[in-house]
Write a protein that binds this DNA or RNA. Structure first.
Length: 313
DNA sequence: CAGCAGACCTGTTGGC
DNA sequence: TGCCAACAGGTCTGCT
């Protein structure tokens, strides 16, 4: 569900509430949230060690690369810190998947039935509760080591949570280079849309913003990346960056209550979408009805007049 | 290694 | 009203 603008909206909210705060207690209500979509069997010891690892730690910051978030941790100064050697080497990792929400509540608020984990936090602003709510459980939580991520354009590597190790830089990061990424995409023998969705190449772009970027750049989603001119791919990347920046300004895209920020508020970018979810409606440029096709197993929205198969290399 | 299909979940919506 | 199929913003694994 959430793509870069939505995750960044959540990250900002979490940063406001959690930076410098101490997690006084962590509780896992559904162990599957600690697994992955393909490794659902989470042993009870993992739940115990997750909860134990977080009790009493302090949140240093809230970081993000693409759709991956993580919070570097330090020992919160509780007694008996025999694990001082690990201070600063671990983070609470959080991925929202398709339906994950991070919500800040007062502790006595009723729990939503899809709440999978609850964190009591205490900070300068008082006490509150961070709740991870996830209807479909495609999201993920974990205490992970911090490791060097992929190298940016200048070769520098930021420390990232282990699950984000393979994610490429996102378009909002320092060091993201449109020409470098465009050349990487040009080497791929897949539909340009599939390349945009490959988080190893550029992270943060999901199904909505891929369709929007390709419309804005006038490129048909099924065009093989390897056959497009580099300048065309660069234009697609710039469009992706632009559309995601505009979406972030209005809090992201919400179709329903499944995407909300930490305060439960929806974003307003849905009204600005030009093709996504507009099957059968007139193209904003030429009035041709928008068509929906399936590409790489994902719904894909295209104006066949504005997005002709491209002039090729 | 690259590319693709399928699996992982729960809920909503639309057609008959 | 009921039932069933299709669909949903993502990622991981295992197979060619």
């Amino acid at each position: 569900m959430p793509e870069l603008p939505e995750v960044e909206s959540v990250r900002r909210g979490l940063a406001t509430w959690l930076t410098g705060s101490t997690i006084t207690r962590a509780r896992v209500l559904d162990a599957r949230i600690l697994g992955t979509t393909s490794a659902r069997n989470v042993p009870a010891e993992r739940v115990v060690s997750f909860e134990r690892a977080l009790a009493g730690v302090r949140v240093v910051s809230v970081e993000r690369r693409g759709k991956y978030m993580w919070m570097p941790l330090v020992s919160g100064g509780l007694a008996g810190d025999g694990e001082a050697a690990e201070v600063g080497e671990r983070a609470l990792a959080m991925h929202l998947g398709m339906s994950g929400q991070a919500r800040i509540h007062e502790a006595d608020n009723p729990l939503h039935p899809h709440t999978r984990a609850v964190f009591d936090v205490a900070g300068p602003a008082g006490v509150a509760q961070l709740r991870f709510v996830d209807q479909r459980i495609f999201g993920h939580l974990g205490v992970e080591r911090l490791v060097p991520g992929v190298a940016g354009a200048a070769g520098e590597r930021r420390l990232v949570a282990e699950s984000a190790r393979g994610a490429g830089l996102d378009p909002f990061e320092d060091g993201f280079s449109v020409p470098v990424v465009a050349r990487a995409i040009a080497r791929k023998n897949v539909a340009i849309k599939s390349a945009l969705l490959d988080q190893r190449v550029v992270s943060g772009v999901g199904n909505i913003y891929a369709d929007e970027a390709l419309f804005e750049a006038g490129v048909h989603p099924a065009t093989r990346a390897s056959r497009l001119r580099i300048s065309r791919i660069e234009r697609v990347l710039e469009a992706a960056s632009d559309v995601m920046a505009r979406a972030l300004e209005v809090g992201g895209t919400s179709f329903d209550a499944l995407y909300v920020n930490v305060n439960g508020e929806s974003g307003y970018f849905e009204r600005s979408l030009q093709v996504y979810g507009r099957e059968g409606q007139p193209c904003v440029r030429c009035s041709t009805p928008i068509t929906r096709v399936v590409l790489g197993g994902r719904s894909t929205h295209v104006c066949v007049k504005c997005q002709k198969p491209q002039r090729l290399r």
